[in-house]
Design a binder for these strands. Structure first.
Lengths: 339, 339
DNA sequence: TTGTATGCGTTATCAG
DNA sequence: CTGATAACGCATACAA
């Protein structure tokens, strides 16, 4: 009955051309930046396109361009505050430069990432950003050799193809150690997770190293994934003993929140009077009054901006950057006693 | 020097065919499910493809199929716990059925959503899921007429083209009212936001209506976007007067957390003894010990499952569903006095 | 400025 | 089971 319904298909440039009484090329040119069309023709084409509901097929276009404008974003646990924020920052910026993000949600295991990277190739993504997970080097090679730009966030294995964007995890961890020492804490603990991601490991080890240099021992605990629950559990474990730590460096804010809650509600300790806590990431919840967590802020916006720059710059310039390294700056709130 | 590097381009089926000594068709069939190829040929093709690093070009394939396998996910504020969880649930499931999600991050305003919907058409997405925002009806028509499946989450405007997936917001709000009444609260408040999304409005109005029927007045406050900060601010406003409310229904957990913190830390009130709080969504933080928020759980997994079913089912079956409506179930924690 | 012709990588159709 | 050929929708070199 309804004519529009009968169509049930995408409109092609051909159809627009016929309605407008011009050639296919004229239609193409009308929608191609920097092509020369007379105002009159453009006008006719535009109105024909509007009435027909025509939209350029980016996919067909990319057959010629070798770049679909799609950027693959590969990550795990994207419902996590930090990852979600990164995703938000990236997708926003991609759209601003006329690209679009395709999210590939890996469960973190090797197979899953491999499958994801394959998708990236299937869709002829011009670039791939790996937010987390450990893609096999061989596949990364394939991506790079296919002309893709591959960007790894927070991974320390320095392959030569992909660009790396990292954080000075060790430096921040050392700073955390100093902050706790200045607060007068002696018995120190590190709360980590079993995830074993390079950045998390670096933070834990950086803290341990700093402590060792100062002649102090550190208790390291990891009870599960990088989550609130794991932090809570770690708190239970660490605080139940007789010689309980006076401070904890949690490699993630999520862990820190869990740890704080265990300390306060399971053991009745007050923060920071009886125990100091430092987190990492500066997720939104760290600023919530209930936590008021002293932590290290990841410069997500700067990182995202940098990634956009990597995507934009001409292929050859890859000499300069090598591996960009950002600083995580301490955010003082109330979970550590001031000096 | 390195040969692989020299290529710098995607490998085509043609090249694979030549190396394997077969025709393009044979290559195509090898990678098409349910095509008939001899084991020997398949073997040859596979190994040739591997050494060359060949990957099927989904884009070219979609030129023929009229469906790229891409599903557009349009949403705003995807860094928010609820949206992030929905995104996670959807992308996971999409991959399981061999599709992939393309995220379009709108700032929420009409123009931005319109642009997004256009992208969806540009990429010949087979379906579009709108997580939030108010797409203009005309564009939705275009999507539907192009053969796209359009799915609107939590929007109450019942257009005939798109499928709607909604929540029984009003029912839940009424239930919230009863819970607070049974707890003995008389002076009630609603904390909402200025976002004005249909579902948020429905919750606030549902609560008000229930109260009105019971002959009670309700103070409604909205101070800003749907965020922790707005909830905190609303708390400041509501609790500073002389006749302060005994209970607050917050249309979102984020608002509820902010409100609770204002109540406890700005006014020294204890929850639930001096003030009861109910939230909505059951975001992860609602379960954190510091909040222990009584709230309504959105059945995100069920919703996501349902959406997958909508995507899978044959075009014609659209008679049955009309608009699926899910129930939000109360999750009792500690922010409301038990009966 | 405009139209014509060609090719991008793939799959469907058809003949063998 | 296999290979040749014609689409698919678009951009561009070229001729007008």
């Amino acid at each position: 009955m309804r004519e529009a319904r009968a169509a049930r298909s995408f409109v092609s440039a051909q159809q627009v051309a016929e309605l407008a009484g011009v050639s296919r090329s004229a239609v193409s040119r009308t929608f191609t930046d920097g092509a020369s069309v007379s105002a009159a023709t453009r006008q006719k084409v535009r109105s024909a396109a509007d009435t027909l509901g025509y939209h350029v097929n980016h996919l067909a276009r990319s057959l010629i361009n070798e770049d679909s404008g799609i950027v693959c974003l590969i990550g795990a646990e994207i419902n996590t505050p930090y990852q979600a924020r990164m995703l938000d920052a990236l997708t926003r910026r991609l759209q601003a430069i006329n690209r679009v993000g395709m999210v590939i949600n890996t469960s973190g295991d090797r197979d899953s990432v491999e499958l994801a990277l394959r998708q990236t190739l299937n869709y002829r993504a011009g670039a791939t950003v790996v937010l987390s997970g450990s893609p096999p080097a061989s596949l990364i090679d394939t991506c790079v050799n296919s002309g893709q730009r591959v960007i790894l966030i927070n991974r320390d294995d320095h392959l030569d193809g992909p660009k790396n964007v990292t954080l000075d995890n060790v430096g921040a961890a050392r700073e955390a150690f100093l902050m706790l020492r200045r607060a007068g804490c002696e018995r120190l603990a590190v709360v980590s997770s079993l995830a074993g991601t390079p950045s998390l490991v670096a933070r834990a080890q950086g803290f341990q190293a700093a402590a060792a240099e100062a002649g102090l021992q550190v208790r390291v605990t990891a009870t599960g994934p990088t989550s609130y629950a794991s932090g809570f559990e770690a708190g239970r474990l660490l605080l139940s003993g007789s010689e309980r730590p006076q401070a904890a460096f949690c490699v993630t804010d999520l862990l820190a929140c869990g740890f704080m809650d265990a300390a306060r509600f399971e053991f009745g300790l007050s923060v920071p009077q009886e125990i100091c806590v430092i987190g990492f990431d500066d997720i939104e919840q760290a600023g919530w009054v209930s936590y008021n967590l002293t932590t290290f802020r990841q410069p997500i916006d700067q990182i995202a901006d940098h990634i956009m720059r990597l995507l934009a710059e001409p292929e050859e310039n890859d000499v300069e950057g090598e591996a960009a390294c950002f600083q995580a700056v301490p955010v003082w709130r109330r979970s550590v006693r001031p000096k």
